[in-house]
Simulated assay, not measured.
Amino acid sequence: MFVFSLKYVAPLEEVDALLPDHVAWLKAQHEAGHFIAWGRKVPREGGLIMAHAPTREMAEELAASDPFVKGGAAEVEVIEFSPSFVAPGLEGLQG
């Protein structure tokens, strides 16, 4: 499992201009089975995406394809983790 931690590096006006493409990308990756959750950081300085990918290389490629990243509005850190505990109902998150 991976977490993509996005940090905005451009003014929010530039982020907002890319938002429709970013949301379409999120939905497409969810439909492809890659993304299971996402949302804004509070305060609004970036966002987080929980992702499934078979390899780190694929996760990094997915993260780099984000319109925010491609458009220069955000930087992304790809964090890999292996859950050792999950709440009931989330057992599918364990590797």
Rank of each mutant, 00 (worst) to 15 (best):
P20H: 06
A64K: 14
A10I: 07
V69H: 02
S65A: 15
L62H: 03
L26M: 15
F85H: 06
L19I: 06
V42P: 00
G72Q: 06
W25P: 02
E91L: 13
V78T: 11
G71H: 06
H22Q: 04
A17K: 15
E57Y: 07
L19W: 09
E45I: 13
L93I: 03
E75H: 11
A37H: 05
V3M: 12
V15K: 09
P11L: 13
P83K: 10
E13W: 06
E31D: 14
D66N: 13
M50K: 05
T55Q: 05
L6K: 03
V9P: 02
G71P: 00
E14G: 04
K7M: 04
E80L: 08
A10E: 05
P88M: 09
G47W: 06
M50V: 12
P43D: 10
G33W: 07
R40M: 03
E31T: 07
G71Y: 02
L6D: 01
A74R: 01
A17I: 08
P43Y: 12
A64R: 13
T55R: 11
F4N: 03
P20C: 10
P43V: 10
D21V: 02
D16Q: 14
L12R: 13
G92K: 14
Q29I: 02
Y8G: 09
A73S: 10
H52P: 00
A24Y: 01
E31M: 09
L18F: 09
E60S: 07
V23H: 03
E13P: 01
A53F: 10
E61Q: 14
V76M: 10
A32I: 06
A64W: 05
P83E: 01
A32Q: 11
P88G: 13
E75T: 14
A74M: 02
L62Q: 02
V42M: 13
G71V: 05
G92N: 10
L6H: 10
P67M: 12
A37C: 13
I79T: 09
G47I: 04
E91C: 14
H30T: 07
M50R: 03
H34C: 13
S84G: 12
A17G: 11
S65V: 08
P83S: 07
R40L: 05
L18P: 02
V23S: 04
K70H: 02
A17L: 15
E60Y: 06
K41S: 09
G89P: 05
V23W: 01
A17T: 06
V76S: 08
G95E: 10
P67L: 13
I79G: 07
G92P: 01
R40V: 00
F85R: 12
E80I: 02
H52N: 08
K27P: 00
G39R: 10
K27W: 00
S65T: 03
H34N: 15
F4V: 01
H22N: 04
E45H: 09
H30L: 07
V76W: 04
H52Q: 08
G92V: 04
E45K: 14
Q94V: 13
L6R: 02
V9T: 15
